[in-house]
């Protein structure tokens, strides 16, 4: 058994800040939507707007980080091992079968995660923040003559924003559950907190073990500061 540093510091900070922001935005957002009462409408709007701006700042930093560190390559969807991963969640997991994908610093995501997270980053989150910005900057008809922003009704904006919110919530439920599918119920959670994942021998001997990432990719990765 060995330890491997999977999640670097900024990635963890980004992950946790984002998760708290999304939870907070969901809470305040669904209060604004009229689904629940918690802070009171006025505070809910205030908090939601502030959290939204915080989220946008975080996203800006995260995008910068993804590109400067080449981290974005981790999210490029692949067919490789996809079927094995799906079969693992459908069947293998119940029989205590080994994980078909081995985690490493260069491959923190399994093929299913790659697809889901890429969809999240490319479609769901942009849907939410673009509709959110339109929501904030929506100006009533014909005011200020800003024709570029002359959306005739708030309704489609609100629809898109709510749609994104539901999608994020569903993701959250599945995501939280899937954190329990590591070697132990909490090992994935621990790794996302500390950055270090326990590597298990049985896994390294897995028949479905994929080839390691090409050497030049590995070279492109900075060696985490704490290593």
């Amino acid at each position: 058994m060995s330890r491997e540093y999977i999640y670097p510091a900024f990635g963890r900070f980004w992950h946790w800040a984002q998760s708290f922001l999304i939870l907070f935005l969901a809470l305040t957002g669904f209060e604004i939507h009229g689904s629940l009462r918690f802070f009171g409408y006025e505070q809910a709007v205030r908090f939601h707007n502030f959290a939204a701006w915080s989220f946008l700042v975080l996203i800006a930093f995260a995008i910068f980080w993804h590109f400067t560190t080449d981290e974005w390559r981790q999210y490029v969807p692949t067919w490789e091992n996809l079927k094995a991963q799906a079969e693992y969640y459908l069947f293998g997991i119940f029989q205590d079968a080994p994980h078909p994908t081995q985690k490493s610093r260069q491959r923190k995501l399994n093929p299913l995660q790659k697809i889901v997270y890429a969809g999240l980053k490319l479609f769901v989150l942009p849907l939410v923040w673009i509709s959110g910005l339109l929501y904030m900057f929506y100006r009533y008809p014909q005011r200020y003559d800003v024709l570029a922003l002359d959306v005739t009704a708030l309704q489609p904006i609100a629809f898109a924003h709510t749609l994104g919110a539901f999608a994020l919530l569903c993701f959250l439920v599945a995501h939280l559950y899937l954190t329990t599918t590591g070697h132990t119920l909490t090992s994935n959670l621990k790794a996302m907190v500390t950055g270090w994942e326990e590597m298990h021998g049985d896994e390294t001997h897995s028949a479905a073990e994929p080839a390691l990432a090409p050497a030049e990719d590995a070279a492109a990765q900075p060696a985490g500061p704490a290593r």
């Binding site: 709510t162 539901f166 919530l169």
Partner: peptide, 22 residues
């Protein structure tokens, strides 16, 4: 459309169903 008052019943219904399904 007034936030807090108005909504799409269809979207809220499907969204809730999807969430419960999850």
């Amino acid at each position: 459309y007034m936030p807090g008052r108005d909504r799409s019943r269809l979207l809220d219904g499907l969204g809730t169903l999807l969430l419960l399904g999850s």
